[in-house]
């Protein structure tokens, strides 16, 4: 970013993390030197509320679907337990579940470690680039 643009951002008023009914978190920053003409500003506000309404509705739809899926999986797990008991396979299923849990823990741990290392490496190289400027 050029020097003139950096100084411009210093002139702005910041209103961040304001909770409202549309979203969990939001932020706003505006240029007080160049405010939108009122007519355009009103229209942009209307557009923004429409976008937020649509995003909120989509999110609600996805949340409801996720909840229904979770309920279905609970029922499926109950059925699986009952079936395993009837077949006398409770021990085998328990062992398989424990094995799967162990596999997940190992993979998850490896993923976390790799990502943390990548982020750390990029943070270091980012700082190096900054100090070389």
């Amino acid at each position: 970013m050029g020097k003139s643009q950096s100084s411009k951002y210093k002139r702005v008023r910041r209103v961040a993390n304001v909770k409202d009914r549309h979203s969990a978190r939001r932020g706003r920053i505006q240029n007080n030197q160049r405010k939108l003409p009122p007519k355009i500003a009103a229209m942009f506000d209307e557009l923004l509320s429409r976008s937020l309404r649509v995003a909120k509705e989509n999110q609600e739809l996805q949340r409801a679907t996720a909840e229904a899926n979770a309920k279905f999986r609970q029922e499926q797990a109950k059925l699986m337990g009952s079936l395993a008991r009837q077949l006398g396979l409770s021990g085998v299923v328990r062992d398989l579940a424990a094995l799967r849990k162990r596999q997940v823990a190992l993979v998850r741990d490896a993923m976390e470690k790799t990502q943390t290392a990548i982020v750390r490496e990029r943070r270091v190289s980012g700082n190096l680039r900054k100090s070389n400027r």
Binding site: K8, S23, R26, I29, Q30, N31, L52, K56, Q59, Q115
Partner: peptide, 28 residues
């Protein structure tokens, strides 16, 4: 064209944070 304002919002599970001054979006 002149910049007038910027708004940002997050919905659902995002774990995101946004720093306007640097333009950095991060989260997990």
């Amino acid at each position: 064209v002149w910049w007038a304002s910027t708004n940002w919002f997050e919905f659902g599970t995002t774990g995101i944070s946004y720093d306007f001054s640097t333009g950095a979006l991060s989260g997990r």
